[in-house]
Amino acid sequence: MRHVIDILDLSTEEIGGLLATAQDIIARPEAYSELCRGKKLATLFFEPSTRTRLSFEAAMYELGGNVLSVTGAATSSASKGESVADTAKVVSCYADIIAMRHPKEGAALVAANNASIPVINAGDGGHCHPTQTLADLLTILREKGRLGDLTVGLCGDLKFGRTVHSLINALSRYENVKFVLISPEELKLPSYVKDSVLKPRGIAYTQTSDLEGALPDLDLLYMTRVQKERFFNEEDYLRLKDSYILTPEKMRLARPDMCVLHPLPRVNEISVAIDNDPRACYFKQVLNGKYMRMALILMLLREAGKLPSAKKPAVRPLETV
């Protein structure tokens, strides 16, 4: 059974296919509106989430399917001590595909090892969040017209930010991508990401704590929130939460075609005064996320034999490198 736990579970060819499908959905939504009729997506969210859960549910509804939903550990059998493995086995009896968010790292892998239906990781603690990365990739492709030849600034919580780790993994597979890692000392990118992704692939990267200094060189700025829920110590959170705030003054230092992305929700790291700047792409990311989740649900249900095979999308994918 095919699952998507990490963005690296998808080859660049498969990601190209998903991008093509998503663009076809955007161009011809009516062609997709009945494809999942009679199919059920179980959204198992054991950690607070608004946009990701709604995005998955909207994606399934727009494909003509139905949704079974669990929100919060307190209202589920997890509160009675049920294991993730047992939950996955039980839900496999009711649904055709699972999207799961869980506060513990590796929970989605445990679910995948025990489910008899496809599992999509909708975020496992600070570890991976592959569908956010798919949303990021479609946004970059639509805004910049390419996924290679980019200087990408990643700013904020690079230590616990799962979206950052997944995006680095994904973009590292395209040609001539450079990373500028902007964070306070305490929230630097973990060494395992550098050792296992950047260094072996010879990817150029620099580390700095100076956002203003880095801005003029960037094609893309990926802002992240300092996540309160990842800290064991509130004092550390309070000290670090306002490390970077993107303001209109700082945006004057950036290129006129630089894109600002953010996985959302934001707290105060991007001033609302930037929302109307044409370079602000974070709300487009939300919409793109729904399209990519639609494409992913279709791909996994087809591979599981629950839907007929795909016809080739009518829209050709943009050049991806």
Binding site: S83, V84, A85, E105, G106, A107, V110, Y192, D195
Partner: peptide
């Protein structure tokens, strides 16, 4: 924060990710 730290029935599984430096990583 690892799922294996709270679900006691799970096997503790590590994968060799760097033979030269003898690095093992938790699969979860």
């Amino acid at each position: 924060r690892c799922i294996s730290s709270c679900e006691q029935e799970l096997s503790q599984i590590f994968r060799l990710t760097d033979r030269e430096h003898k690095v093992y990583r938790c699969i979860y």
